[in-house]
Write a protein that binds this DNA or RNA. Sequence first.
DNA 1: GTCTATACGCTGATAGAC
DNA 2: GTCTATCAGCGTATAGAC
Lengths: 211, 211
Amino acid sequence: MARPARKDVEHLLPTPDRIVETATQLFLETGYAGTSMSALAKACGIQKASLYHHFESKEAVLFACFQTGFAETVERMRSAAERTDLSFQDRLPLVLDEVYAAIVSSGAGRMAPVVAETTGRIPEVAERFNDEFIEEMHEIFEVFARDGMEAGEFEPFDLGALDHALFGVPVNLTLCRSMFAKFPDLEERYAVETVKGQHLQILRKLLGLQG
Amino acid sequence: MARPARKDVEHLLPTPDRIVETATQLFLETGYAGTSMSALAKACGIQKASLYHHFESKEAVLFACFQTGFAETVERMRSAAERTDLSFQDRLPLVLDEVYAAIVSSGAGRMAPVVAETTGRIPEVAERFNDEFIEEMHEIFEVFARDGMEAGEFEPFDLGALDHALFGVPVNLTLCRSMFAKFPDLEERYAVETVKGQHLQILRKLLGLQG
DNA sequence: GTCTATACGCTGATAGAC
DNA sequence: GTCTATCAGCGTATAGAC
């Protein structure tokens, strides 16, 4: 009996990319330890042994998941922060858009719980996550905020505090959206655009842009 | 040959409590799926089979970890928020102390990544976490903030936004402290008291208490 | 590059002695 | 209540045909 034909979607990406994308999804849903190579193979529509043709181990798959997207994400945020054709306060919502893309919507930031889960046994993941993602994002925003203050567009405010105010809200949102992913009212209670709007209010008030 | 004497510390708590406490610690460090019953037994200083005398399954241990402390934590926050002998602005740091205790220092909030990891297969955990912890904390703060505004002590500000400003910062801090637990400079970069102080600045500014 | 088949340790869980 | 001994099944990973 012939093997049933695969769905077209499985051929949209070369196998290694498809594995990484599928693995990312599964790690997000059930964690690293909770995702078996068998489950990954099945979700990819290939046999388990074929995984080992592309990646030498499960850890290698994890590393590959963290190799993707950091640089692009950081560069998108940098571009928004350096839009010198705009005033600082006009750049603020653009920067915020990139922060939410990076952390909540499509982003690397959603992997934070997986980093927490694996940091004990695979510390390299946490190191890369910190060096290539977190530190970069913080630095870009710090420069942006300080320049805005020096230009007199933003009221002076503690840069460290501002940093927490910027990243805390979307990180909390991502975690809630992950914890309550199965709740039917998720999109109501934790709507990205709504929270982003409220977050912008917060930042504008802290930077003295109100009124 | 005689079995080596146990350390005194293992006898400070009755066995079921010791199991729950040890399991909480292990779940925090290596996740639910990443923590085996053998590892738990060894960390408790008992045999694996003895675990099953006290808990009928691994899931039962997880539930027990989430049964502990929610009510007390919520009540401590409520007490702080309802200190009618103090002004609203004097209550604010006390409320913040309880929020940090609940989420960062000793708290139930540190289990959020475990909730995220298990919500797909064990949705009851996420439901309890939401109903008995998150929702309660939000409601207490919302009442506190609204009453403070109505009393004229706080400037009016969007309550939803304020909510994100309150919980985002400590949730982000907890997650960072979990991800970078092995970093030698953890206590420098992510010191609880420092962040709490910066967080208080943020809230005071949003509530119009500056100056 | 994908498959079938398999090695073998570890998993959650149980039986039954003490 | 704790132990030793054991189970079936699943975990990661490999061998070798096509």
